[in-house]
Design a protein around this nucleic acid. Structure first.
Lengths: 350, 350
DNA sequence: CTGTTAGCGCCTTCAG
DNA sequence: CTGAAGGCGCTAACAG
């Protein structure tokens, strides 16, 4: 994360670039008229408009974003910092976000934090400096000074993947705790009484914390308990799910149901169970979180909680864009999750 | 893709933002000194440096990127346009690219084209306007005028996922044709003589074209032929792989080996074969392309071509950054691919 | 509808 | 090592 700025200056990025003045000269109008023509064509007489358009064409004029931004006080850029980008989870949200934002003539500056608060802060600062007019973040796991930094620039922001952050931050997401509770409740109803959880890293992932809490709440409400020995914190990878599953099954008196805080962990558990010859769900029910495409294709197919990742990306874009046009924007309501019951869960073995 | 620019102006993005002049006043030095202190601390006496740093802290000064870019002619932004972002394929490359770029103090502007040349052109133009100093693109499937547009701004660019584009564009990638040939050769050596290919859409994906050509070349060299009926162009989704596989197996005298131009298509084929009760590889060998994590976890595990997506992202970053510092950069050499033989391929049934 | 006039906030010579 | 001065390319009032 060390910044090595290039030692010395470099030849200008756009050496003899053609400017708006060049276009004006070529079209025989004033620079101001060209500017208008570019930003609000209707306000320019048709004849001049076509002349200007021709000049733009022949000169291959490309407006200078920084100059435009400086004068207009609009960068037309939105920023997004995701924990990671190498899966369809945040990738899907990013793609949806980008698509919406592009339709409004905005551009997306993106960064990946790797679930590291320090890197997230670094990136947020960079995005703010580069002038993003709005910011999409994931979750609420960051220090107060980061919010102060954002507030200081007056940049609108939105927290995705959660539905209510203490401190009154605008959120576009779902209730992780409730979703986990719902899943646990379903499993309890099936008759399970001993549970394991494969969780994300609670130290840097408040969604993981909430999901774990949701499970605990439900168990407690039923007079059950989640044994510390049966909770595994792991990175969100199938391989990690396999490892954890192996450890879990080596314990005395293993549980009959496993709740995974993310889908790759559940995939790994199912794969490992398969390799161990342990029948799912007959000997062990396994459930996940997110409902990626693989969940429905696996055998057994995975019971999981459907999570609105596309919707979050899209709605976050709409929210930020609305804030930028000065609209009064209502506090977004939590998005729905849906329990998708498939073949990987069933009654416990008698 | 219609642009609806917000009707009317909006209150300034950074209303009463603190400027470099404010910092200068607070620190009792000239603006120029503050600027130096920010960009080249060594050139300022230690005492003033600390005074300036304090002022920056207490005032919560955040530099104004657009102003800096306009004056210095450096936006410190790089652009990237990928076909899609909702999988670990391009997502992995993006993440690697972003990480490298961030280490150099740069920021990444990203867009997804959805494999649509028009949208790609639109996004490339937008990125150039927003001032990216370099551009990562995928493949070579675009009209000449897009390259002219880029050339006109003098922006360095690099084409990833391919190793040589006609027209002498700098490329950082691998030889899709050779990789496919290699894979086909391996299957021929196993004794297969009748092949099917599940390909990407050749109209908008030059990597898919090259892979198809690679297979054709090898077959031809062996005196074999790829029946047009056995070539399916599909979007890169498992579901599409399932569909195509069902169609394929409904044909008279189906092939004994299937080569998939992307891994999701291969996953789908394997899932469908499983559901049909068709043993893989005994009755049908199936191979893919990319070696994502699932390839090794599937049963049967997938024979596939490992593709350097992380390396491409990272190298593209290094290449562009080097070009920006004015270094003479050698034409990058093609990256390696590797045939990973697993359990989904074997000799044809007698 | 169009041209003129001032900057936007910062960097970067150039003197000192 | 530091300050003063000019301008990067464009937009946004303001007149006309």
């Amino acid at each position: 994360m060390s910044i090595r700025r290039s030692e010395s200056a470099v030849k200008s990025v756009r050496p003899g670039a053609v400017t708006l003045d060049d276009v004006a000269a070529a079209a025989g109008v004033s620079p101001a008229t060209v500017s208008r023509c570019l930003n609000n064509p209707q306000s320019v007489r048709t004849e001049k408009r076509t002349r200007i358009r021709e000049a733009v064409e022949t000169l291959n004029y490309v407006p200078h974003g920084a100059a435009r931004a400086l004068a207009s006080r609009h960068t037309r850029m939105l920023g997004a910092v995701f924990p990671s980008l190498d899966s369809a989870l945040f990738g899907g949200a990013l793609e949806a976000f980008q698509n919406e934002v592009a339709d409004a003539g905005y551009t997306v500056v993106v960064a990946a934090s790797g679930y590291d608060p320090e890197r997230e802060r670094f990136h947020i600062r960079n995005l703010l400096e580069s002038g993003v007019e709005g910011l999409l973040l994931v979750g609420n796991g960051r220090a107060a000074d980061v919010y102060r930094l954002i507030a200081n620039t007056g940049t609108p922001y939105v927290l995705t993947w959660i539905s209510e952050a203490s401190g009154g931050h605008p959120c576009i997401g779902f209730d992780n705790c409730a979703a986990a509770t719902h899943l646990a409740s379903y499993l309890c109803d099936l008759g399970h009484r001993r549970f394991a959880v494969f969780s994300g890293q609670t130290a840097t992932n408040d969604r993981a914390v909430a999901r774990l809490e949701g499970v605990r709440n439900e168990l407690q409400a039923r007079g059950l308990e989640l044994e510390p020995d049966f909770v595994f914190e792991r990175p969100f990878e199938a391989e990690a799910g396999r490892d954890a599953f192996r450890l879990l099954m080596a314990r005395d008196n293993p549980p009959t149901a496993l709740i995974c805080g993310s889908e790759p962990l559940a995939y790994g558990a199912i794969f490992e169970a398969h390799d161990m010859g342990l029948p799912v769900p007959e000997q062990m029910s396994i459930a996940g979180f997110d409902d990626m495409w693989l969940a429905a294709q696996l055998r057994p197919s995975l019971t999981t909680v459907q999570t609105p990742r596309i919707e979050m990306g899209r709605n976050a874009a709409h929210y930020l864009l609305a804030r930028l046009t000065g609209e009064e924007v209502a506090e977004p309501r939590p998005l729905e999750t849906k329990l998708i019951v498939r073949a990987s869960t069933g009654p416990p073995p008698d």
